[in-house]
Simulated scan of single mutants.
Amino acid sequence: MYSHVLNRLSSSLWATWQTRLLVFSVLLICILTGSNEALAHAVTAGDKGYIQEISGVNILPFMYLGAKHMITGYDHILFLFGVIFFLYRMKHIGIYVSLFALGHSTTMILGVYFNIGMNSYLIDAIIGLSVVYKALDNIGAYQTWFGYQPNTKIAVLIFGLFHGFGLSTKILEYEMSPDGLLPNLLAFNMGVEIGQLLALAIILIGMSYWRRTSSFIRNAYTANVAMMSAGFILVGMQLTGYLMSQ
């Protein structure tokens, strides 16, 4: 009897802790997006100055910058979290992550190589919308509202293309030297993929522990609502930054 009570108490405390963690995560994103640097998701002055001073092929520095951008890119991480939220088999995770990587790699490399720039606030607002879209998809909103389920693989690929334009916009801010541009771009992209795999590994470890508890099903809806709220906050802050910059 006592063990039963303790188990119920432990489960209740675990659920309360998770809810607080979700609220804290949303508040943390609010704080991050409240800063000028986070508004535009801009490159740091130190990184930009370093890139402007070097020329030629620099594989390792650009790999580092790519990995750093992905790991610190809270919008990319939120979208990735939403993508794998209900994926249990590694085969399915690999397919979706590969589609996302294909999308952002294509537009990132082509965008920089052909100097196709976009307003950083607007592209980051679209990336924020991708988080909202995926959260709504996870809670079955499209089936409920429209009686139709969009193709999730195509959606991940398309939003991957927009994430890639976000990356290319940041790279153009580096004002990279044309000397060794393509190898450096490929190195940056490789760094992005390494950063993505590291972030994915951390997410999967956390999710694997959470999924073993009964609170996962109970709080899955709340988690996605929190993620959707964070996406709307990102969109609002980016659009505010855009209007302020005009």
Rank of each mutant, 00 (worst) to 15 (best):
F114R: 09
P178M: 06
D47N: 14
P61K: 01
L172M: 14
T152I: 07
Y174V: 00
Q143Y: 08
F165L: 10
A187P: 02
D179R: 04
G49N: 15
D75M: 11
D137I: 11
T222I: 11
S214K: 13
F86L: 14
F81S: 15
K68A: 04
I59S: 09
E173D: 05
I194K: 01
V43D: 06
T72Y: 00
A201E: 00
L78P: 00
Q18F: 15
S229I: 13
S214Y: 02
A135F: 09
R212L: 06
E193W: 04
I126W: 12
Y113F: 15
S120Y: 06
L204Q: 00
A223L: 04
R89N: 13
S120T: 09
M176E: 03
S98R: 01
G111Q: 03
S208D: 08
A42Y: 08
G195T: 03
H104Y: 13
F85A: 09
K91L: 07
Q149K: 15
F165M: 07
S12N: 05
T72N: 00
V235H: 02
A220C: 07
Y96G: 01
S214L: 07
I31V: 10
L6C: 00
F232C: 06
I95M: 08
G82K: 02
G73S: 01
E175F: 01
L239M: 05
L13D: 05
V131E: 03
I71K: 02
M228R: 10
Y2C: 11
P61M: 04
N7P: 05
D124G: 12
S105V: 11
E193S: 02
S120H: 07
L22Y: 13
L197P: 10
